[in-house]
Design a protein around this nucleic acid. Sequence first.
RNA 1: GGCCCCGUAGCUCAAUUGGAUAGAGCACUCGCCUUCUAAGCGAGUGGCUGCAGGUUCGAGUCCUGCCGGGGUCACCA
Length: 581
Amino acid sequence: MNLFAEIRGLVLDTLTAMTAEGALPAGLDFAAVAVEPPRDAAHGDMATNAAMVLAKPAGMQPRAIAEALAARLVADPRIMLAEPAGPGFLNLRLAPVVWQGLVAQAITAGAGFGRSTLGQGQKINVEFVSANPTGPMHVGHVRGAVFGDALARLLDFSGHAVTREYYINDGGAQVDVLARSAFERYREANGLSPEIREGLYPGDYLIPVGEALKAKYGTSLLDKPESDWLVDVRLFATEAMMAMIREDLALLDVHMDVYSSEKALYGTGKIEAALAELDRQGLIYKGVLEPPKGKTLEDWEPREQLLFRSTAHGDDVDRPVQKSDGSWTYFAPDIAYHFDKVQRGFDALIDILGADHGGYVKRMKAAVAALSGGRVPLDIKLIQLVRLFKNGEPFKMSKRAGTFVTLRDVVEQAGADVTRFVMLTRKNDAALDFDFAKVLEQSKDNPVFYVQYAHARICSVLRRARDAGIAVDDATLLNADLTRLDHKAELDLAKKIAEWPRLVEIAARGHEPHRVAFYLYELASDLHGHWNRGNDDTSLRFVQEGDVAATQAKIALARATAVVISAGLGILGVKPLDEMR
RNA sequence: GGCCCCGUAGCUCAAUUGGAUAGAGCACUCGCCUUCUAAGCGAGUGGCUGCAGGUUCGAGUCCUGCCGGGGUCACCA
């Protein structure tokens, strides 16, 4: 239940009534009327812009509308005060009983508090990671994996039917390289010295693949030409890599619903079908592209290629779908793949790509726009890179894989929860510094710890109350006399909790999970602040000696805070802690 | 050169999708532990939101043009 939406409903009803009474001209559009928390708490609990938005179309002074609206709103028991302010805002102050009731709502809803029906069950596909199956996940994949998974959780929480999907890039030349690299390890397993030539993958992670190949094929492949073993070894090695990738992702608690293979699109007619659909729309033609301006390519030569008229849907130039040797470009099967997603009935698609793929965005959007008849929106989130540090020094590590920091390295150093949280404390399109020393620091400088500590403190209070023989189970708390929560500091904390359902919707609408992390930090800050107020004013402590009723009311507030922290961390994929140890 | 992203306090970043006097943390200054966890809290200092125009009741946010940083640019995925 979004309290802001509820009050907006009240405002709209009131405006409608005013129209009926002739206090407002008929036919006004209320769509732009908003009810929001004001930036400055001194302005009240909520503010509506109704008077400003309606002044011009109504041909009235904002002030006059605001005053008329205010006079009617205060008749509602939820509205304690309504006063026009500034250029025409109407500031609202809500009755304490609203906030007290909200505490009960949060406890009742528990982990589901803030769940929204915003998505209306809309089917939405989140494609992320989609790394080449040629080795373990490395640090560059971590942020995209965490972001995609958190976004999926956020969309699920806000009422969407989410599918997490991984597109296996197993159709290109790099999986042939993988096969040859694995074959050398297979020779090595048979006692021969491997020839890891330039361009092959040198990583140790292929040694067990070579041994597995030996277990399966013995020595039978050793003397055969590549053409005899390439297909089998490639399949074997690719599957081994995918198994490893799944394990890596599981370390971060990331689990895909669907794995789609690029290679599987070849030979099925799906690529041809997708291009035929584009062709039917007159978007496929043979042509020669202009050389890129301002950049000299020595080996440039005019080439006639099969092109997709992506410029018809907002791209800057048309894009080749076929190489000069007649084989498909990477783009062609990806078009087919997105066509497949459209045909599977998704209402919206999201792709999460590295920022270095920014040049790919327009053409993919163009393809989806054409193939779905403009019905299915595609949002592409570009993930900026992560710079690793340790105590402020650039961090390089190369144990297992030889040349790069792996996902496993990061998780083993920092832990999954810390890694996930930190990766989500920045907008996706801003670069992020990840310092192994700082993220493990146990101080308020570290947002992960800070939020966890707030949750642990609340659990500590609950334990203390139980030790004192006070019942604090949810059912009891719901029956507590919440009107005892009458102090401004307590109501302020309840107000922060009230923002949660609204924040979920804003974050979900914008595909911006980082907002959850920032909100949790603010909520934790409010909790810590309130906690310390108990130092000076013992009447604000959660546990009140000799007053069970007051204790239960105050602990209900603490419990509601914990519920929100827990729900928020759930979206980030981080486990709340009951104690800090 | 084209396109995309970024530019906000000394530093790292937010800013409720166009709202009121632009907010946090760090750093700096000053306070708070016989106390439900001081692993914390409070107060203060700090801004021409890169620059210049435009749109409107109102712009960090939208539009145009510059400046600076990053990414990317036909037969790589």
